[in-house]
Nucleic acid binder design. Structure first.
Lengths: 356, 356
DNA sequence: CCACTTTACTAATGCGCATTAATAGCTTAC
DNA sequence: GTAAGCTATTAATGCGCATTAGTAAAGTGG
């Protein structure tokens, strides 16, 4: 049989004071500090020592209103066996920022019984509410997002999401400028015919697409042509590469490094090399661990500042929680990206240009 | 102005029932299940849906209920930037088991203000209590453990810990049998003079030591000698290796793979090779990522079943939580280890034996 | 010496929930 | 037809604490 913990009331009885007095002593707040005599203070401290009293955080929370719990909802495993998990860098940033802001981190691991994906709403109830606010990673379900918004639950989405019914708070990478920068660099080297290939057409893709068109517009010359389409890695065969290159495309933007790698490989098999015959870049740095180290180093690509994004999300969410009684617009933050690599972009081969 | 979170009272009012009814519906316990009519149940569920009600864990805890929160206390970063974090495999197992047992995972990230280590007691209060129970990883502070025990808070320690004041629940790797197996294998190959080197003398080391002595006792032959001492990687210089080997030691057990690797390197520099001149093995598989791949594959070592240990900890803790009102002995579980590698153990060179 | 302020404390309340005793309506038993 | 037993629900209570509105005692001013 578990024995009960001593409470403030026990301490108070032993010290010969009231429970309120104990509570006041335990919660020093500015001037109140002066209202309890040193003598009483000492009696209470002695009683605390003697009983080995520790405060009950649940009671304190209940009376005070805050949990200092920061929820983290991940649509997938937070700790994948494969350590190169997609979400890991975000979590590093989140953990670090949680420490700074004095939150415990609540990972929503409960699924809804069925073997399916994790959902915010279980039995129709939002179980995120257990936390003061939550960070959402990789949630694809826009319905759930919209519903969360309507409930006015404080949350921050990592990655950009546009929801029809209003603005949500998010922190996103600046794919627009990243893409624009890379393509501009290519065009400055003489490339005129460009290709833009993506895996899924989502909000992030839209940003890249805008950057792509911005670069095209800004470097406009007479005979620009370009191709743009959705693509899977499996589709990137030597034949596909030949089609693209024979169409005259010399500057290629791939959403994922794996796609860029596959293209370079496919092209190599038909005797075209990079950066001699074409230039190529990736518009993310996902899953680099699966590529050869050299490729990971040399490929021009957008580096997503995942760590900073995670930390920024915590920071923003803390703001939303602190201000949760004021009316508050959604906070939307775009974080600059960097570009790494270099040797997969080169000048256009003049001979070819002349031949064509 | 953010509206207050709905409470059971709000749900009750909307559904036209009492708060008690709502609570009863939300806490199904055996036969009580029958005491609320299906009609009322539906009304309440509808109200819950409409309000987006979710339970307040602090209040529930205070009132004696359950949160389905499994605490995880790590003395270090759960998500280290360096992805080969020591704790990662445990967390994989924990997450997986939490999903199976329907717990959310609460990572205690709050530190106690100062820059120091994470502590269970902050301002003298045990902040783990918000979770139904907690898993403790890498806690070195035995005082805190003893105190937790005295409070009868349900927790499971990962790694073996003997506390003076009674038994705590833990899940540990079977270093005893692992060490014994490796040394026996060496001795079966003719090794008689052995060395056992450890990094820190902790509870796990004690188990290895017991295994070491058990193997010695069981394979006893007339002229057994051995050396045993604490060691850091820095101390493992070529000179040190020469000392050890010249003393006639041919079978070496190192606590950490890094130590084994350092020894093999040091020995190589003075012209002694493994397994020709000596056999060596590691008694853990920590930090393998920092060693050359080949070493990681060939070195004989104990593989710690971290994943299984994490999962077992969740399982045990769930048991403790479920039975928390019954008197319950501590649960202590030892999980078998496997041994990997092979090419760093060989037969003793007969010529040397004859010469000596 | 009386009204007024300051000091040092306590009584009372409520946070949101689980739990238990109580109750009202309704059925069965004899 | 009344006692006894169900069934479905609620009222009441307390978990441990923070907070607010007191209040008694001591001090101050004129």
């Amino acid at each position: 049989m578990r024995k009960k913990q001593p409470t403030q009331a026990d301490v108070a009885k032993l010290a010969g004071v009231s429970q309120s007095t104990v509570s006041i002593i335990l919660n020093p707040q500015g001037k109140d500090h002066l209202l309890i005599s040193e003598e009483t203070r000492e009696k209470v401290q002695a009683a605390i020592q003697e009983l080995g009293y520790v405060i009950n955080p649940a009671a304190r929370t209940l009376a005070g209103g805050q949990n200092r719990l920061m929820g983290v909802f991940i649509n997938g495993s937070a700790f994948p066996l494969d350590q190169h998990g997609f979400y890991h860098p975000y979590l590093v940033g989140i953990e670090e920022a949680c420490i700074r802001h004095d939150y415990d981190m609540l990972l929503f691991t409960r699924s809804d019984g069925g073997e399916g994906v994790r959902r915010i709403y279980r039995n129709g109830l939002n179980h995120l509410r257990i936390a003061d606010g939550s960070i959402l990673l990789g949630l694809e379900n826009k319905e759930e997002l919209a519903r969360l918004m309507k409930e006015e639950y404080p949350f921050v989405f990592i990655g950009k999401r546009e929801v029809p019914d209003g603005d949500i708070s998010y922190v996103a990478a600046d794919y627009f400028r990243g893409t624009q920068t890379i393509l501009s660099r290519m065009m400055a080297l003489g490339h005129r015919q460009t290709g833009f290939f993506y895996r899924l057409y989502n909000d992030a893709t839209k940003d890249r697409e805008r950057g792509y068109h911005a670069a095209l517009a800004e470097n406009y010359h007479s005979s620009v042509t370009h191709m743009k389409r959705q693509l899977t890695v499996q589709e990137i065969t030597p034949a596909f590469c030949r089609d693209v290159l024979d169409a005259g495309v010399t500057a290629i933007l791939m959403e994922e490094p794996a796609m860029a790698h596959a293209f370079a490989e496919g092209a190599r098999q038909i005797g075209r090399t990079c950066p001699d015959d074409f230039s190529i870049a990736a518009l993310s740095d996902n899953d680099l661990a699966y590529l050869p180290t050299q490729v990971a180093q040399e490929l021009v690509m957008i580096n997503i500042p995942k760590l900073a994004m995670g930390a920024a999300a915590v920071h923003m969410l803390n703001q939303l929680i602190v201000d949760r009684n004021k009316a508050h617009d959604a906070i939307q933050m775009t974080i600059p990206v960097t570009i790494s690599g270099g040797s997969t972009i080169g000048t256009v081969r003049v001979e070819e240009e002349l031949q064509g």
